[in-house]
Amino acid sequence: MDNTMTLTKKVALIHSFEPEPDAAVNILLTLQQATKDAYVDEASARLVADYVGLTLANIYELVSYYPALNEQPQARYVLTFCHSAPCAVSDNGFIEKTLHQILGIDEGQVTDDGLLAYQGVACVGACEQAPFIKIKDHIFPNLTTDKIQQLVADLKAGHFDDIL
């Protein structure tokens, strides 16, 4: 996990939740969002498991089952787009094709600088803003090819460093 997050900080974050199994997903999501690499590594998973009284295997099952939890380090910016049917009607693979063109990588791959990746996900409830790209909490709505190019340039230039 992000090496800027010290063990003490991690433990403090975990201990801000109740030590019950039902807090596991809450903790894992919070922990993941608090770190730059945005994934749950084994050491952190073990801390969570011991704290909430689940086993490491239980935690692994959660992390590997849910799309919102990651087993592997993520790119700095993961550009998510919707591949569900309602958006497909509106954009018909437009975002995916455009990102493939601009970034030169396939879905799920990471650019060489570790900065960018794109990933199709199921509905995020922003259907009325399609075609859109979602990065963490932020939605970039009603995109065109130019707007996507601008967005990628902005991300590379670090313009969104503070909000994302």
Partner: peptide
């Protein structure tokens, strides 16, 4: 508790440890 049924859909498999 070594084993879990990790991942989902057709990718579901038995996974030991983490």
């Amino acid at each position: 508790d070594v084993l879990s049924m990790g991942r989902r859909g057709i990718e579901t498999r038995i996974i030991p440890g983490y």
